[in-house]
Amino acid sequence: MLGMGVRMEEDIKLVSRFKNKDMAAYDEIFSKYYKPVSYYIFKMVYNKEIAEDITQDTFIKVYKALGNVDDNVRLSSWIYRIAHNACIDYIRKNKSTLELLDNAKEICDLNRGPEQQFMNKELHDKIVRVMGKINSRYRSVLILRDYNDLSYKDISIVLKCSESAIKSLIHRARLEFQKVFEAVD
């Protein structure tokens, strides 16, 4: 929790510097959040080019809106929220969840480190298919929690609902993931 507090303090300083026209602060925000946010976006749309476009648009929106945010904003949740909305807009407009997943096999690369060797290519492809079949809200909470390591509080800010609703949503998402995982051959 101490780490979280320090991170939030850093973020508050970055926002304050940005508001005082210190453009280096935006660079730091970009460097800090590019990787987790772009991974989240990629895992939501499973298409490298589209993920890159959405990532760019997300950071443009961040730049344009950062001057008007509250000084004590939880920056990470706020950026994830912008990214999440952009992904949901894209998914709604394109209804492309399933077709996108065809690309994922080519562009996802398994980490072959010693800890991850258990996950073979077949299993990976299956996960991609399962992620494509489950509801985008379930997919979103699973990624935010299990991949991006956001707390329930942060996820509740991103998805604009209560922490208790998030607990229930994550539980249902895992049940759904497991159900589809067992059904997919």
Binding site: D109, I127, Y147
Partner: peptide
């Protein structure tokens, strides 16, 4: 979910 890694463009 956690161990699936991706190669994305550099920051």
């Amino acid at each position: 979910v956690r161990n699936e890694s991706i190669q994305l463009k550099s920051a």
